[in-house]
């Protein structure tokens, strides 16, 4: 694979220090993700997978090591720089959807564009496209609590993709959904990935992980195995 590196980490560390206890969440993680990949991160509770995802998503900063995004070392980037990278390159999907209760579906989806300073007409157009893609256009004027879980997650994915990010980070995206809706969400993520978006997903579910190209197994803050998803590659080759 000679594709361009999107993310590169060297000996990434994260320690949480409370009054008496020091907890190591990440103990030297070396991970490279190229553009267009679909990576699943797995591991038992407390292994550090969410911490890793948060750092990759620039929501948290590492305590040690090097973190490069698109070849640029941003290990010690300021909060403002990181916010800028977030809004230009990243999209997030959460287990609990995290839609803003006071905004309608349409307004929630348009939010990233508002912070990017996209014009009103352009926003309207792109939000409409995203909603249609996710099949929730008919729910545009509803508030999140008026939607089913599946619909909420589709709205959340629409919001994560509306700004055409190069990377989507998904934290247990099917965790709060039944299996039918869960499969639906995974299909959407796959579709996005096939359209060229890099996807990094944290999951407990082996069946969800099956959608990824590569599965990274984390244990006690370290990568223990890194497997190519053979079935997926074979499927693509065929």
């Amino acid at each position: 694979m000679n594709k361009e590196l999107l993310i590169e980490t060297k000996q990434l560390q994260k320690k949480y220090v409370t009054d008496t206890v020091e907890t190591t969440a990440l103990a030297g993680v070396d991970l490279s993700i190229t553009k267009g990949e679909f990576v699943a991160i797995m591991g038992p509770s407390g292994c550090g997978k969410s911490t890793l995802l948060n750092i990759l998503g620039l929501l948290d900063s590492p305590s040690g090591g090097v973190f490069k995004f698109l070849g640029e070392d941003i290990t010690n980037a300021s909060e403002r720089q990181r916010a800028k990278i977030r809004k230009q390159n990243l999209g997030f999907v959460f287990q609990s959807f995290n839609l803003i209760d006071e905004l309608t579906v349409e307004e929630n989806i348009g939010l990233p564009l508002a912070y990017l300073g996209v014009s009103k007409a352009e926003t309207e157009k792109r939000v409409m496209e995203a909603m249609e893609r996710m099949g929730i256009a008919h729910r545009r004027n509803h508030f999140p609590q008026q939607l089913s879980g599946g619909q909420q997650q589709r709205a959340a994915i629409a919001r994560a993709t509306v700004s055409n990010p190069s990377l989507i980070l998904a934290d247990e995206p099917t965790g709060n959904l039944d299996s039918v809706h869960g499969r639906e969400v995974m299909a959407l993520l796959t579709e996005l990935n096939e359209a060229g978006t890099t996807v990094v997903m944290v999951t407990h579910s082996p069946s969800d992980a099956e959608y990824a190209h590569r599965i990274v197994n984390l244990f006690d803050g370290q990568i223990v195995t890194e497997n190519l998803n053979v079935r997926k590659h074979v499927a693509e080759l065929l």
Binding site: L59, A83, R86, N98, L99, I100, D101, L111, P112
Partner: peptide, 16 residues
């Protein structure tokens, strides 16, 4: 809190 977190996730600066 959730709203603040989300706005930050999608790229809001603290000043905003």
């Amino acid at each position: 809190a959730k709203e603040v977190g989300l706005r930050k996730v999608v790229g809001a600066y603290r000043s905003q």
